[in-house]
Structure formats: C-alpha cells, structure tokens
Design a protein around this nucleic acid. Structure first.
Lengths: 361, 361
DNA sequence: TTGAAAGCGCTAACAG
DNA sequence: CTGTTAGCGCTTTCAA
C-alpha cells in the first residue's frame, strides 16, 4: 500500500516521462494527456474538467485542476481550434498602427472582446487597400472567429474570399449601401455638410479644406462642397471659395502647419480651415500662433476626431465628435452574438456624430 | 478515352464533393486534399508544391497552383502550425493601445516581421502588470514563435512559464541585469541623469518632475534626483528643489495642464518642468501659454519621446529622443534569427538616447 | 521527384 | 458523470 502522508497524492503520481516516440526538438511539452494521466482520468474527462467543469463531478474537477497546475499545463489552442473550428481570435484590419485615429475604437473593441475570452490580432492594410488580398489569405488561414475592418472591403476578389470563408465580418467607420455582412459607422458625407453649415452660419466664406485622399475624406469633402453650393445658392450675391489642400495619411501636426503656411504663401484669402483630423488642426493652430494670427477672430479652425488634446489647445478646439468607443463596442457585441450563433439585433448601426463647440471656431 | 478540348484538363477533373463523413456546420471547406485531388497528385506533393516548390517538378507545381486558385484554396495555418510547431505568429505585449508611446516601435516591429512572413498579435497587459500571468496562458496557448514584451517580465511565475514554454522572448525599452532571454532597450536612469544635467547646466534650480508610477518613470526619477544631489553637492551654497508630481498612465495633455496649474496653485517656485512624455509637455506648454508664462525664459519645459508634435509646438520642444524604431527593428531581427535557429549576434542591445535640443528648454 | 503512413493535441460524437 | 473512438488539416518520417 503506498504511503499516504499529509501532502496527499502529490508524491505518488506516476512521473511525467517524455514519450519515447517524439525525438524532435522539445515541443511545448506538457499535454492534456499528461494531465489526465497524473489525475488518473481519461483525456476527454480532463478536457471537460478544464473547459466545461459543470458537467464533471467536483472531485474530478479538483483532481484535474491540481494535476494541471502541478505539471504546468498550458492548453494548445491550435489543436483545440483545429478540432472545434473556433479559434477565439478576432482580426482587426487597420490602415496603420502609429498615428492611427482608430486606436480608441480598437482599444474599446479589444477590451470588450478580451472580456468575452477573445484575443485580437492586428493586420495592417495601408490606406490604399493595396495588398488587401494578400493579407487576407494569411488572415483567413488562421481561421479567426471574426474580422473587423477599418473602412469597407472594396475589392470584389476580397469580398468573395471573405464570403467563401464564411467568417463574420464587421465593416466600420463608414456607411455602405451594400455592407458585406455587419456594419457600424456613420455618414462622412453628413459630417462634411455639418462642418460646412457650421462655418457658413458663423459668417465664414473663404475656406481651406485639408484632407487626405481616402474614401472617408473624399466623402466629407463632397458633403462640404454640396452644402456650401446650396448655401451660396440661397444667397446668390455672396462670394465664397473653397481651396482643397491634400495631405498624406495618417495626417500630422507637421502637415497642419504646412497647410496654413502654404495657403498664406499662395496669397489666398482664408477665414476658416476645415481639417480632417485634430492633429492637423493642432498644427494649424500652432502655425497661426507662430504668425500672430488670432484664432478664431481672424481665422476659424475646425478639427475632426475630438481626441484627447482638443479641449486643451489654446484656444480650445472646436471639432467633430465621433463615438469611436461606441464603434468598438458595437462591433464587439455584434461579432460575439454572431459567433455564439445568434443574430445580432441590428446588422447595421449608425453611431452618428456631433460638433463639439469650443473656441477655435 | 476522355474528351480533351482546348480548355485542357479543367473539364475532366473529379468534382469537388463535400466528404460524406463531416456533416457538421460547413467548416472552411476547401482543403489541401481537394487541391491534390483536382491536381491529380498526392496530398503531400500538393503541400510541397505550395510551400517548397524547389523540390517538386515545375509541371507539378504549375498543376497544383492552378488547382489551388481554381477552387479557392486557403491553407489552414492552424493545422500546419500544430504539426510543424511553427505558427509564424509573434505576440507583442503592451500596457495599453490607445495613447501608447510604444506604437512607433510596434509599427516598425510589425512591418519588419510582416516582411519575413510573420504576423503580430497584440496583448494588453496594463501598466501594473497585474494580469500578466492570466494573459500569458492564452498567449502561450497559441504557440507563438516569439514574444516581445514592453518592459520586463517581472513576476517569477510568469518568467518560469515562459522559460518552460521555450518561446523566444525579447524584453524591450529597459535594461536589465537579468534578462529573461533577449533584450533591447536603454537606461532610464541615465535619461534621468541627462535631463537633470541639462537643466542644471542652464541654470535652473527649482524643478517639477512629472512622472508615472511605472518602473521606467521611477528609474528616470532616481537618476534625476541623484544627478541633482551630486551637482548641488559640488556647489554647496546653491539651494535647489525637486517637486515630484505623479500622473496616471498613459500620460495626457490634460495631465500636463494640471501639473503646471497644481504646482502654481501650491505657490511653488518653479523654473523648470521635466515631463515623462511629450503629451505631458504639450499640456504644460499650453497651460503656460494660457497663463502668459513665457517659455523658456520664465519656465523651461523638457519632454520625453520626441514624438511627431515636438518640433512643431510653439516654442518648439526640447525633448529626449529615443530610438523607438530601432527598438522595433532590433527586436524583429533578434527574434527572426532565433526562430530560424541561429544565435543573434547580440542578446542584449542598448539603443541609447539623446537630448534633442529645441527652444522650450 | 513522389508517395504512404502516422500523428501533432485536442474535442465532437456516441456510447456506457 | 465518464470513457472510447475517430479525425480536424496538415507536415514529418520513412520508403520508393
């Protein structure tokens, strides 16, 4: 009869021996099999004790848990995912990491997903969607439970690939007439209109619109133009002007300084600058300050994003407030619902926007 | 004899039928087996044609590639990784995503790894390393080929886990007497010394040091204190003072404004503020501007990070320049070397730092 | 240059 | 509540 001391079963367990069969480089080592052997149960029982403890007796659960922690077991998610077809992995496609205006949304998304037991992988896709397709294979290959895209999936080939793979997709940050699957965003066209209306109503007539060449920027620009044309039409006599200034993305403070100094260098008459990001607006504000131009009296400056810096600039920045956290949370919720086999309440969510009025415009 | 028309083999291939065996929800669908069948070769040959084309005849490679693209094959990386024990996945542990000062490094890392065929997953670990261990299981479970940590792995349990898993690890952003594995960083203590020396030499004697409670901030603070004590010791008669102002992380522009206004509110005599981030310094500059305090004449402001905004503030910001891109690139290089079975030239890299002199101090 | 067999570590399905 | 069997999709090993 084996000795039973106060330490209990620990000293009498069969030793964990490396299986003679595998003589390659040491793999991860401890497997569920080892746990089962130490606990004196079958592999599947060990699996259940760890992943679905309610359907296993309490004593068994205890034994298995003890065994697992004793021998330092870390489950191989690759194997589990292969079998169960669920990877607990969500991939987020972003244009870029550094300087990205989407990070707050991604933070919210990541946190919400982590709480539900999912992990997030980031894929960089660039602002031009150029290697969208190449990346997609590498991503689909990992069989993620969901994909969140910043923007829309544009190329027909990529759309087909995603549909075929049957992976739930959430497109974000824009609206679309034909979403691939689920979508949460808002209308950039309307943002452009609202920005134009805001500036027009305050008597500004000569605008610089600084924007990138991305779809969303173009949509805002179009909204801005259209709203202005309409407003100018109503008051036929007034003269107004728009100067379009293109910046590269992600936009920067440096670019903002450049935008204003270029405009003035060209001798333009400007009384308002509409920016495609807060960073850009910060740059414009600095340049104005450096040149002794008084904001908002001589020049109105409108930002976009309502980032952390906006309420603290001098003067404080009027900017478009976007519910980025809401985007992240909605995307997470929709995705989780779908993965758990339910249908999300809404397949398309418009989170809207508002203009946060402060002192720069 | 089967009909051979100009379309070649396409019409005579056996149709891709769903295997009668699996009747669950449709998995990914197309497998390497399907490709092999369509191409008329064995599974392993198809595998080799796709992953190691040099050891397969050109005609076979062509056949297999055609078959793969014809039926829309996307390899299941889960299965491959399970067998080959290589996941082509690298995990980066960051304290936080939004507002993180480490993003430029991560961008560089991600780009370099992507070029070598690796993908990056981000894990958030918080600034207090509190759930370091819990996250670690989820991460190790995916059997990444490498792990890059922002900071050091502190807890003994976590260190053991990582060693047992045998996964290459790069700790970053700090130096360490006992790196777990590989390391690329620089001395924060020396940064603190350099900041103190810089301010002292320019005649400032009454400092506010604004910093977080993280290790790196504390190390800089200690260096600052020590250097100052030494300098003050040499000139016994001069009086000097340090006021330590703690901010939460990641630090913000808002916190920067608060730091200055708190210090003045307490009636402190301050002629220099040493910040733990550029964001903080930007806030201090704004607060000074709002109060009509002239920088640098009445107040010197020193930043840390040399982020994009630093050269564009008014006045431009003097700040500590850190080679974040270098950190990312070194980490990538070291990791790749190790995964490919080589020994990296150096296991520990000190990328150093410098003070970027501009106008705020 | 190609193939057959085996099995990575885990979980779904179906018994007991 | 527990166990047996089979196999996810791929790559390694060994053989031709």
């Amino acid at each position: 009869m084996p000795v039973k001391d106060s330490a209990g079963f620990r000293r009498n367990d069969p030793p964990i021996e490396t299986q003679g069969t595998s003589r390659r480089r040491a793999p991860s080592g401890v497997t569920l099999n080892d746990v089962a052997r130490v606990a004196g149960v079958s592999t599947i029982t060990a699996s259940r004790a760890l992943n679905n403890p309610t359907i296993v007796s309490d004593t068994t659960v205890e034994k298995v848990r003890a065994a697992a922690s004793q021998i330092g077991y870390v489950p191989n998610l690759l194997a589990g995912s292969l079998k169960s077809n669920r990877s607990r992995l969500v991939v987020v496609l972003v244009p870029t990491i550094a300087g990205s205006p989407f990070l707050r949304a991604i933070q919210a998304l990541t946190d919400a997903l982590a709480r539900a037991g999912y992990q997030v992988m980031m894929g960089q896709i660039g602002y031009d969607n150029s290697h969208e397709e190449a990346l997609l294979d590498a991503i689909i290959g990992r069989r993620p439970d969901g994909i969140v895209v910043t923007g829309l999936i544009t190329s027909e080939a990529a759309r087909r690939k995603l549909m075929m793979a049957g992976i739930p997709v959430v497109e974000t940050w824009q609206m679309s007439a034909e979403p691939l699957d689920m979508l949460v965003g808002f209308s950039h066209y309307k943002v452009g209109e609202a920005m134009a209306a805001y500036l027009w109503e305050r008597g500004h007539r000569h605008y610089v619109v600084a924007t990138g060449r991305d779809v969303r920027g173009q949509q805002r620009l179009q909204g801005f133009r259209d709203k202005l044309a309409a407003a100018a039409g109503n008051e036929g006599q007034t003269s107004s002007s728009i100067y379009e200034s293109y910046v590269s993305l992600p936009s920067t403070v440096a670019a903002g300084r450049q935008v204003l100094s270029d405009a003035l260098g060209q001798g333009l008459h400007v009384d308002a600058i509409c920016c495609c990001s807060d960073a850009l607006a910060v740059g414009v504000l600095y340049e104005a300050q450096a040149r002794g131009i008084v904001v908002p009296d001589e020049l109105a400056v409108l930002g976009y994003g309502d980032t952390e810096i906006a309420p603290h600039t001098v003067p404080t920045m009027t900017t478009v407030r976007v519910d980025d956290v809401g985007i992240g949370l909605h995307a997470a919720r929709m995705l989780i619902a779908r993965v758990e086999g339910q249908t999300p309440e809404q397949m398309v969510v418009d989170v809207g926007f508002s203009i946060q009025q402060r002192h720069s415009a």
